[in-house]
């Protein structure tokens, strides 16, 4: 309690500790994440390993793609997380802009590079899959292009939140950029339905049975869940680090002021 009150943001609301700000308390976040994080990381790593090994050695090959279909067990989770991570970034941005949630600011800064890395993973593995199957490393169809735009949005956010001397201004500008970029998410999702693309439409949909054999679906679900937990663990660890770094800065500044006075 004592340490967190030192670095708690200036009480902006008249009733701090109420509603959302209850979870915004960085001290509480440190304690909670300290308990959850080891489990999150361990489960994520185990499930990812299970999904990948299952997909690589035990899942059947596709009748026309052969073994190249196994790239799916990396590519598809990366693609889902590229979009899901951006959704997380957007939610943090709303919390940051509307509720001035101090933890959301830090989380948004830390989600950016992780989301960019998973988007890059999606683009790279997609390219590696496209060459043997389609016959091209890259095409400018609507699906591939919109995911590339997502990657640039992440890069833009990473650069923008770090571009200001005053971090508050960086958080605000980054949040606005992130929210403008949300338009891209439905475009990515529906690009394969709205326009002619080289990329095939979604296999797993909310409306119908997945057009995938169960023996391939299970390892995909495991690796997707595993990668999701790994993503969450990385973001949580980075956010923990950011909270502690901010606490260190504040303490050092206070100490400097004390000695000056």
């Amino acid at each position: 309690m004592d340490a967190s009150s030192v670095v708690a943001p200036p009480p902006s609301g008249r009733n701090p500790g109420r509603s959302l700000h209850r979870f915004a308390n960085p001290g509480r976040f440190l304690r909670l994440s300290g308990v959850v994080l080891p489990w999150l990381a361990a489960t994520g790593a185990a499930l990812t390993a299970l999904g990948l090994i299952w997909g690589l050695f035990y899942a059947p090959a596709d009748w026309q793609q052969g073994d190249a279909v196994r790239i799916m067990y990396v590519h598809v989770p990366a693609a889902w997380l590229a979009s899901a991570g951006y959704l997380g970034l957007a939610i943090c941005s709303v919390l940051s802009l509307v509720w001035r949630h101090p933890l959301a600011d830090l989380a948004a800064v830390e989600i950016g590079p992780v989301g960019a890395a998973f988007t890059a993973l999606c683009l790279l593995t997609g390219s590696i899959w496209g060459k043997p199957m389609w016959g091209a490393w890259w095409v400018w169809d609507a699906r591939l292009t919109s995911v590339l735009v997502l990657f640039f949005l992440y890069l833009g956010h990473i650069a923008l939140v770090r571009a200001f001397d005053n971090p508050e201004r960086g958080y605000r500008s980054g949040a606005i950029l992130a929210l403008i970029g949300v338009v891209n998410l439905p475009i990515i999702k529906f690009s394969v339905d709205w326009w002619n693309t080289l990329h095939q439409p979604d296999t797993i949909t909310l409306t119908g049975a997945p057009t995938m054999y169960v023996g391939m679906l299970w390892p995909l679900l495991f690796s997707a869940l595993g990668y999701t937990l790994v993503f969450a663990a990385i973001v949580a660890a980075r956010t923990r680090a950011a909270v502690m770094e901010r606490r260190i800065r504040t303490l050092l500044m206070m100490r400097a002021e004390e000695t000056a006075a």
Binding site: A41, A45, T48, L52, L56, A61, G66, D67, A68, R70, I71, Y73, V74, H75, A78, P113, V114, A117, F118, A120, L121, L124, T125, I128, W129, K131, P132, Y227, V230, F231, A233, I234, A237, R238, R240, A241, M244
Partner: peptide, 28 residues
């Protein structure tokens, strides 16, 4: 079939998240 492509994809799929995870925990 397509072994080099599969290996490349899996190496990236382990290395990229793995290095981010290691870096994040070291920073923490």
């Amino acid at each position: 079939t397509h072994l080099p492509y599969i290996v490349a994809a899996y190496v990236l799929g382990v290395l990229i998240p793995g290095s981010f995870a290691v870096a994040a925990f070291a920073r923490m």
